[in-house]
């Protein structure tokens, strides 16, 4: 069960940000911003030719005291970040991956919307609802 989801565009500015708890949004924004550094680092070091590079899923980026941050980068350099509560031990790697996959297909759908110009912030109610469903795991 994710607490926060962010979609960051090619230029590293946020396209979409959603928190289940709106009060913590500012704090989460900071955390996600910091995690971008790690994402970039991971992308850069893939030149070394390890196997991880073939995957879009980056794995855990950060482990904070109370939260864990996972990252996923598409081929089009769009980054998805999911923040998960640490106390929730039930979530395993596979589930995180599946969350990312669903997120990716949601994103692909919204990109195909001709009224959405890639590069803008995403404001679509149905997208909000879908993402919230993914976050709470009710999909």
């Amino acid at each position: 069960m994710a607490v926060c989801v962010a979609i960051i565009g090619k230029d590293n500015s946020p396209k979409y940000f959603c928190c289940l708890n709106p009060d913590e949004e500012l704090g989460f924004q900071y955390k996600v911003l910091s995690s971008l550094d790690v994402v970039e680092e991971k992308l850069n070091t893939t030149n070394k030719g390890t196997n991880d590079l073939r995957e879009l899923y980056l794995g855990m980026l950060y482990s904070l005291e109370t939260h864990k941050i996972y990252g996923y980068v598409t081929n089009t350099k769009i980054k998805f970040i999911i923040v998960v509560d640490s106390t929730n031990m039930a979530l395993r790697d596979n589930e995180i991956r599946s969350m990312f996959r669903k997120l990716h297909s949601e994103y692909a759908d919204i990109v195909c919307n001709p009224f959405y110009i890639p590069g803008d912030a995403i404001c679509s109610k149905s997208f909000d609802v879908n993402v919230k469903n993914i976050m709470t795991g009710t999909v």
Partner: peptide, 22 residues
């Protein structure tokens, strides 16, 4: 990604607005 010169800021649209405002 904040620069103190507004002219520069206009060209480059980067950074996280919420954090920048904060």
């Amino acid at each position: 990604r904040l620069s103190l010169d507004p002219a520069e800021m206009r060209e480059v649209e980067q950074g996280w607005p919420v954090l920048q405002i904060q």
